[in-house]
Design a protein around this nucleic acid. Structure first.
Lengths: 89, 89, 89, 89
DNA sequence: GTGGTCTAGACCACT
DNA sequence: GTGGTCTAGACCACG
């Protein structure tokens, strides 16, 4: 089941892509659906995938790990400030 | 969808008032129309609202305080089922 | 889907028998799974069948034909009481 | 609403094509959904379209109207005879 | 232009 | 590997 993560990290599955259904994955890997679900939840906690109820699982945008969240906030706040200035002028 | 019940119980929606259409509710709450319908059906079973085909859903007179009979039956049937399972095991 | 009821009433399916899974029934009758579920829910309300989550649907004891809801409640309460006694013993 | 028939006969809509939804058609032509439905039922009686519940309306194979059925049979029989001859030679 | 039912197929909860 | 709930959107019945 770590093969899924490999697919995501290698780029075979990109942001926005829909994963095969949980039933398909269970069949493909020959495991119980519970196992698939646990694995997906794990990947979700790491920020790799996200479910939409009744629709499917999707690869998320690359997780912000590696960049400090506070840095990210500062960057965005600067951007907002700049845009506001441009609008007012 | 429990917000609707809150609106009714708080008095924001009184007896005789018409609810927004199922399609509007679906859009408002960001859910599918079937989900709205299921929620309304539950509120109906509890005696809060009532539909009229081709017209709309309406808030009913104050519901039968306590527990609805059908609910009671459902509850008991579940309990019986559970107890039987425990006995068999 | 009314064929199921016929099977039950004719005795081809007796009390305690397990029905085919909802997915099988959907395939057999060529309808969507939600439709199967709705049909089963109706049969349940009429007291013909009963589900157990994660296990399946089962034919119940002969249904409460012409029985008042209050009677039904009383009957179930007695049944619960009896089952509890059996568990404690 | 006869525009739909024109679209079908002219070939803009071919066999197997799905029509716009009844709601869309009603909106497009600025008529009530009942009117759309009646028109579609009319086209269905003439063998032009066919509905599938919960899915949509589809253009059927070209109906045999306009050519007499016996003529059609004769034509086909000649065609079969001709093809057989070509095969044998 | 509303409520009601259905399709096709997904995820979720449970045993 | 079951039942339960949900999505998105279709047709159907009705006032």
């Amino acid at each position: 089941m770590t093969a899924l993560l490999a697919d995501i990290e290698s780029g075979r599955l990109g942001p926005g892509d829909q994963l095969p259904s949980t039933r398909e994955l269970a069949e493909q890997y020959g495991v119980a659906s519970m196992t698939v679900r646990n694995a997906l939840k794990h990947l979700q906690q790491q920020g790799h995938v996200q479910p939409t109820h009744g629709v499917g699982w999707f690869v998320t945008e690359p997780p912000p790990s590696g960049q400090d969240l506070e840095d990210r906030v500062a960057t965005l706040e600067r951007e907002v400030q700049e845009l506001r200035t441009r609008i007012e002028s």
